Simulated assay, not measured.
Amino acid sequence: MPKILIVDDEPNIVTLISRYAQREGYNIVTASDGREAIDKCQSEDFDVIIMDVMMPDTDGFTACKKIKEFKDVPVIMLSARGTEFDKLFGFEVGVDDYVTKPFSPMELMARIKVILSHSKSTEQKSDNGKLTVGGIEIDTLGLKVTVDGEKADLTAKEYSLLLLLVKNNGIVLSRDKILNEVWGYDSFGVDRTVDWQIKLLRSKLGDYRDSIKTVRGVGYKFEV
């Protein structure tokens, strides 16, 4: 049974999400602020975290960044602030999805299902091999990447994005294709989602940053 951590300082929001999540058969744990969420993640494992941005003590962005430092768990961020800047900042600190309040509980459940199915698919496809292109080595079992022998500190989304690009070495991938393969569904309201993630990924590839080519008006391709 998937275990979901719901983090929000508004009891009515926690109750609403919990009710729908329990109908889907999920095991629910709750926290009222970011600090409590960090503490619970240190002692428990979760399949998905649903976290509000604006909370007392420790905000959602800070909590997400802290949690990602020691645990690779998908985070869906909830926020009344729906500007592109807020969403892109969320992706930068490791957020996997961003839902703007007010939101549809059914849509939120659908997004959770996509994230869970994508995580399961990634685990099933992992093997004992290592994929190497130039000085980039991708460990598909350990979900780790090294660049010229040095470990690259990638988020889960950056890892999935790099793996997709490398597996399609030399092939142009559209933004829609990348969104569907990495996020599991079409664009959810952020036109620059892929562009921003590509920028972050390039910054972590050292001398191989230019291996990710921009194909104007279409998307991207990886080429060494």
Rank of each mutant, 00 (worst) to 15 (best):
K120F: 13
N128R: 10
A156H: 09
G129Q: 04
M109F: 13
F103G: 03
G149V: 12
A110S: 15
M109Y: 12
V147K: 00
A156D: 08
N180Y: 11
N168I: 03
T132Q: 12
K120H: 15
N169L: 13
R175W: 03
V172Y: 01
G129K: 10
R111K: 10
L179N: 06
G149A: 09
T155F: 12
P105K: 12
E123M: 11
V172H: 01
V182W: 05
T122M: 13
A156P: 09
K120G: 12
S174T: 11
L164T: 09
G142R: 11
Q124R: 14
H118C: 12
E181P: 02
S174I: 06
L116R: 10
V133D: 02
D148T: 03
M106Q: 15
A110Y: 14
E137K: 03
S126Q: 08
L131T: 02
L163R: 09
N128P: 00
G134I: 08
D97L: 03
G135S: 05
L179V: 00
V114C: 10
G142K: 12
G134H: 02
V166F: 03
G184F: 00
I178G: 01
E107Y: 13
S187F: 06
P105N: 14
T122F: 10
H118N: 15
L143F: 06
N128F: 02
F103N: 02
S104V: 07
V114W: 08
G135Y: 00
L161W: 07
L154K: 07
I115A: 15
V133Q: 02
W183G: 01
T146G: 01
P105S: 13
Q124E: 09
L173N: 01
T155W: 07
K130F: 04
S121T: 15
H118T: 13
L131M: 07
D186Q: 05
S160C: 06
S104E: 09
T155C: 12
T155R: 04
G142F: 04
K113Q: 13
L164E: 07
L165H: 08
A110H: 15
K177M: 08
S187T: 03
K157Y: 14
T122N: 11
P105F: 11
L131F: 04
L108A: 10
L162C: 04
M109E: 06
R175S: 03
L154G: 10
L163C: 03
M109V: 14
E181Q: 07
G134A: 05
K120C: 13
Y98A: 05
S126T: 12
K113T: 08
K144Y: 02
L162M: 04
I115G: 11
L173Q: 07
G184Y: 00
L116V: 15
A152M: 01
K101L: 14
L116D: 12
I115F: 14
L163Y: 05
V145W: 00
V166P: 01
D97M: 06
M106L: 15
S104I: 10
K120S: 15
E150T: 05
D127C: 06
K113Y: 10
K113D: 14
D148S: 04
K157A: 14
L179H: 04
V133C: 05
A152R: 01
L143E: 03
V172R: 02
L154W: 07
T155G: 14
M106V: 15
F103V: 09
T100H: 10
V133R: 06
T100C: 09
D97V: 02
V114N: 12
L143W: 01
L165A: 04
L162V: 02
P105C: 13
G135Q: 01
I178E: 04
L173C: 06
